[in-house]
């Protein structure tokens, strides 16, 4: 299949970027979106042009490294990561806009690659449990009801790709932070640091310059891990509780 691409090209954070048109010719229907970009880059290299920079790693849909806003939707038209998006989702001759994830907290590095370290810093602020290292504990030393484990797992499915913030008209990271907070709040191991965690993570989130939730619900629509916005409700609830306890 042949495609008309409009790709965001930007040499570095300091220069101005622009959409540049490329023709992608003879693209197999069964190749992934990233493989299509690989083919385009091969073509660019053979012509002595600079290839398009984009993020990718596992290409299995689990690492959260691939990004791209495709035709106005982060990760494109299917509810997966970009690496799991196949060209058969597109029509022959279609025009495809390819832009980076846009948020001030995700500064652009080059072309389509952005720096998503802000998410790492939010995690480092409190998205963990402090436990003594050593031998692995007995499997059932701490009993967790199945429903709680399932609830925690649903939230833990977040791969931290940043599509939520990229899709949100406010560039809010509250689905991501909500998922991390909900994951540990559902488990007994997360209880001792529950309040400190939510306060620290929300403050880091604000400091990183993300927006805040206006309940557009765009985040859950594009989330490749299908995280529900109920985690944002949990985040609001836990933050209310922790802030009240800290202040009163």
């Amino acid at each position: 299949m042949n495609l008309h691409l409009k790709v965001w090209r930007q040499k570095n954070p300091a220069t101005k970027g622009a959409l540049v048109s490329y023709e992608a010719r003879n693209i197999p229907e069964d190749c992934s979106f990233l493989e299509m970009l690989d083919l385009v880059n091969e073509d660019l290299l053979s012509r002595g042009e600079e290839p398009i920079a984009f993020d990718h790693d596992c290409r299995e849909g689990i690492c959260g490294m691939c990004s791209l806003t495709i035709n106005g939707i982060p990760h494109g038209p299917s509810e997966t990561t970009t690496c799991q998006l196949y060209m058969r989702k597109f029509k022959d001759g279609q025009t495809i806009y390819i832009e980076p994830f846009r948020a001030s907290a995700f500064p652009l590095l080059r072309d389509l690659a952005v720096n998503r370290s802000a998410f790492d810093r939010i995690q480092q602020a409190g998205g963990f449990i402090s436990a003594h290292v050593g031998a692995a504990p007995d499997g059932n030393a701490i009993l967790v009801p199945k429903t709680d484990a399932d609830h925690a797992m649903e939230a833990a499915a977040c791969i931290g790709c940043g599509a939520c913030a990229a899709a949100c008209p406010n560039a809010s990271a509250m689905l991501f932070v909500g998922a991390k907070v909900t994951h540990l709040a559902a488990l007994p191991q997360g209880q001792p640091e529950r309040e400190r965690r939510v306060l620290a993570m929300v403050r880091r989130m604000d400091a990183e310059g993300f927006g805040n939730c206006s309940n557009y619900l765009e985040c859950e629509a594009v989330c490749p891990a299908e995280i529900s916005t109920t985690v944002i409700g949990q985040l609001n609830r836990d933050y209310a509780h922790a802030l009240a306890k800290e202040s009163l």
Partner: peptide
């Protein structure tokens, strides 16, 4: 705050399920 969080607009942005 929300405007500042997205200083560069998308050239093309589609809304999936916002009411």
């Amino acid at each position: 705050m929300n405007r500042a969080a997205r200083p560069d607009a998308y050239a093309l942005k589609r809304s999936v399920q916002a009411k």
